[in-house]
Structure formats: structure tokens, C-alpha cells
Nucleic acid binder design. Sequence first.
DNA 1: CCAAAAGTGTTGGTTTTACACCCATGG
DNA 2: CCATGGGTGTAAAACCAACACTTTTGG
Lengths: 225, 225
Amino acid sequence: METRGFMQVAVDAVVFTVLQDELRILLIKRKYPPFKGMYALPGGFVNKGEELEEAVKRELDEETGVKDVFLKQIGTYGGVRRDPRGRILSVAFLALIQPNQRLKAATDAMDAEWFAVDGLPELGFDHSDIISDALEQLRYEVQTTNIAFQILPKSFTLTQLQQLYEDVLGRGLDKRNFRKKVKELGILKETSEMLREGAHRPARLYRFVESKYSGIRDEIHVFLG
Amino acid sequence: METRGFMQVAVDAVVFTVLQDELRILLIKRKYPPFKGMYALPGGFVNKGEELEEAVKRELDEETGVKDVFLKQIGTYGGVRRDPRGRILSVAFLALIQPNQRLKAATDAMDAEWFAVDGLPELGFDHSDIISDALEQLRYEVQTTNIAFQILPKSFTLTQLQQLYEDVLGRGLDKRNFRKKVKELGILKETSEMLREGAHRPARLYRFVESKYSGIRDEIHVFLG
DNA sequence: CCAAAAGTGTTGGTTTTACACCCATGG
DNA sequence: CCATGGGTGTAAAACCAACACTTTTGG
């Protein structure tokens, strides 16, 4: 009776970023069993007296070198058989980082890599489920909050923003409708800078007006082209 | 090092039902410290080898006599100081039951009561936060899935359905618009029965077409008057 | 006959969708 | 001068919001 309810608790993170204008997820190659040779989400056990979010940040830094993440809890995976080593409850987080953080170099134990969302390798544990749930959550958030600015660089072109939305929503959006919508929402301000890259007209750079995560939740469904 | 990650894990449930055409939440009066005399959500520790949902169902039955619940996880509350007895992680669930289940009679230890959503008593722990999150979740679910049928009797009038939506969304809806919307969604079929109760025209009874929880998720925002 | 809730359509405004061409640049 | 992506408006369709009266019943 005195040990009722005790079990091992871990955290896992589904880290998204945009790399080469494409939405990507951070995975770690497992070099030891279980699931040796397969990939898995970064994560690990929560220490005594450590908040869940602290644990995620610590593990991400240790395992991948990634810092300054935005976190949002997506769910807890508690199946009795989900981990072959024994019962381990895992609290999963959606994590967003600004692009271009350098990853830790591969070591004997660790090897972190970015994967395109539609080109994921085989995953251990129930981590595919976790990733689907994270994507669904991200899809919701992107439509009801300004969460996107957590994942884009400080200034960005409208095409980059649209591409992010398309990647997250998994479908194409109309360029003119998208721009009209975004502009009349008043969440962006244009800068005086341009991005020039390649044999074509330069693109104006924009920033978010609100530099904090904030719900536009009163109206579900804010974006969409 | 060998005890890393071990902590006590509990589950809590925010149980909703409709009673006298009003949305209500099930609470338990605490007869012992901490928070003696205040109310709290039903819940308790997860047993060894027990799935989280099993634990919720067991605790609900033990503490309140409520059975046959529909469960949906809403979040995990892991703050280091959220329980004065020590660190206890709690996985919270949204729980819906059909109306008119009889509650267990009050005992020395337990005393379960239904409260209207806008007339809640003072709550112990972080249970007010959990209830707000549950309501937000319910608001989302009701607009994107047929979850409502988990909480209404098998057949119901359109007015009862509308009242549920109004309670959940916290605002009034237009009767004609609501009925039009609901009918063209094709999620209801009318029965041949009528509900007669009171000095007025009897109301036709309807049932849900799908008798399973199913997302209408492709389009967020399905209802609304 | 009265009170109470059930039931039923139309219209104007807003929002969403579909759609095609010119512009600025680098090579 | 050519290829590439940046940038811009309009019209039709779909959707949403506002609105009032008749019906059926019990007492």
C-alpha cells in the first residue's frame, strides 16, 4: 500500500524547426537496445524535484545541443507495455526552436539528426503515435494562435510563412488569399529589409507584431488560404 | 541514480453530465486534510500494472459510484509543489457520462455531489485550473466531433442538444440557425417518439446517427448558431 | 382561453474561394 | 533575354447572422 502510484516518469520532445524551407523533426539514433539502430524522440527521466519542462530542456540540451525551446505539453503516454524495459510513463511535449541551431556532433552514445516530416525513418517505442499527435496539435495551434513565430526566424518572407503553413497543414494554400488574410489580421509588420537570394525579385521581410505566444482563440480557424 | 524518474502518479477526472437540463461537474467533499472541508476532483493513485484509464474508472466507481464513462485525456499536471503531501504527478481526464446515474450515498470518507459549472465551490489543489482546461477541451471537442452524444441520453430533443451547446460554449445560440446547421450535418436522425412534459407542444426526439465517437475534424468549427 | 415551449424561412452581409498577369533580379 | 520566384485584385459562391410568427399542448 505504501508504494501505490510510484512509477518511472520520463519526458519526450517532438522538436520542430524549419530547415531549407522545410518542416523537420529532430530524432536520435539509438545505439543500444531496446530498438537499437532505430530512431527515437529525444527525452529522458525526470529528476527528483525537477519540473517537467526543466527536464525536457535539460535532456534536449544534453542529447542534442538544442536550447531556447518553446514547449507545449501534448499528452501523456502511460501504456503498461509501451517500453520493453518496464513501465515508464512519458509526458510528451511539442517543442519549437528558431532555425539554424547547431546540433551536437555525433558521439558514441548520441547521434541527433533532422528529418523531413514526410520522410521519417522507422521509430522505436510508440514514438510514431506521439509524432502524429504532435502534428495534430501543431496544426491546431497554428490556426488559432501566433505560435508560428516560435519556429520562424525573427524576420521572414511571406512565402516562408506560407510554406510553413502548408507543411503543417499538409496542403497547398492560395498565395493571394493567404497574403490578404495574413495582412488583415494585423499580426505582421513589414520591415524595410529585403531578402535577395537567387535570380528573381527580392522578397520583403516581415516580423510578428506580438513577440509573445498569444491565442487568437476567440475565433477558431484564423488562417487558411 | 537508480531511482531516477520515480514519482507518485495519480489520475483525476472532470466528470460532466447534464442534470435538469444543466451542465454539471462531479466533485467530492474532502473530509481530511489537506484541504479539509473543500471540494476536489475525484481521482487517486494508479496501481502497479494498471492502465491510466482503468485507474480512472476504478477510482470513479469507488469514490462516486459512477460507471460507463467516456474518457479523454486532457493533460498532466506535474508541478513540484502542487500537492502539499509531496510530489504527485496527476494525469487529468475529461469524463462524460449519460445522465441519471445514481451517486453513492455519502459516507464518513466520501461525499460526492454535482455542481453547476458556474456555481462551483472552493476547490483544493490546482483543481480549478484542471477544470478550466477541461472546459476548454470540451468546448473544442463539441465543435469538432460528435462527442456530445456521450453526455446526452440516447434520445433527446433539439432543445436539449442546443442547451448543452449553450452551456458548454457559454453563450446563447439562435434556435433556427442551430436547427438548420444540425440537420444539414446529417448527424442526427429523428425518431417517431415525442417527449411530452408540461403545458406545451411535445418535442420530437432524435438520436445520433453515429453511435461512436468520431471526429468531424477535417473542418474545425462545425457547429455554432 | 392562457401560458409555455416547439417548430419553421428569408434576407443582407460577410467570408471564402478561384483565378492570371506583370515585376525585379541574377546569370 | 530568360528563368525564377515576388507581388497584386476581382467576381461568384458559400456561409453566417439576424429576425417573428404559428402550432400544440396542459391546466
